[in-house]
């Protein structure tokens, strides 16, 4: 897999309690103008119809912007139906191989991992990239401290597929994470709560590409 095909700035949302699904599509579209090239639709436990509607709305807002890949989380059927470019899976989701069978060889399939072993397994299973975290302390997981930048270096030595760092990522810490070997970062709150998501996305993008 050509590394260049893997998006480097992932937006994760809408995040329960941060944005409603309705406002997420608009924020995502703004963030995409600023350089977000992966938009995740993550609505854990929501009915299939609701997930499909949000995915369709994000697709509609992206319009002809082909630089951006939509990742439906967990629901591989929805990913297939809306012709999303990808699916993103957790440790308790469908296995990568099953998702691949339903989505075809061209789809990008990501996998969340929390340790080196999980990352190696995801690579063996055929994942195109891993979302690894959480790297920094985050409000999403208040009881678990961040694993740190050093952990990202460890992961990137252990696997050859791109590692996308997630968890408490702010604009300032993007540089160190990329220097540690991450291919990119995944961001939730930092973009979802920004008054200007496009500007924040731009500053993150610059730091990703600077190296």
């Amino acid at each position: 897999m050509n590394r260049e095909r893997i998006p480097r700035l992932h937006l994760i949302g809408p995040l329960n309690g941060v944005l409603t699904p309705d406002s997420y599509a608009a924020v995502a579209a703004r963030a995409a103008e600023g350089g977000v090239d992966a938009i995740h639709v993550r609505l854990p436990g929501a009915p299939g119809g609701e997930i499909m509607r949000l995915a369709e709305e994000v697709m509609a807002r992206l319009g002809s912007n082909v630089r951006v890949t939509l990742f439906v989380n967990d629901r591989v059927d929805v990913a297939a139906l809306v012709s999303a470019g990808g699916a993103h899976l957790g440790e308790r989701s469908l296995p990568v191989a099953q998702a691949r069978r339903l989505l075809g060889v061209d789809a990008l399939i990501g996998r969340s991992v929390h340790d080196v072993r999980g990352a190696a397994q995801a690579q063996d299973d055929g994942a195109d990239f891993v979302l690894a975290g959480h790297v920094f302390d985050t409000d999403s997981k208040p009881d678990q401290p961040g694993k740190g930048v050093h952990w990202i270096s460890e992961l990137t030595r252990a696997v050859s597929i791109p590692v996308i760092a997630i968890g408490g990522i702010s604009v300032e810490c993007v540089g160190p994470v990329i220097q540690a070997g991450a291919w990119g970062v995944a961001v939730g709150r930092e973009l979802l709560t920004a008054s200007d998501p496009k500007a924040v996305a731009e500053s993150i993008r610059i730091r990703i590409e600077q190296k």
Binding site: P47, G48, R75, D77, A80, L94, Q98, R101, L102
Partner: peptide
């Protein structure tokens, strides 16, 4: 129930 992906898999 509900899950087309799991039905197919």
């Amino acid at each position: 129930n509900d899950r087309v992906d799991i039905a197919l898999a």
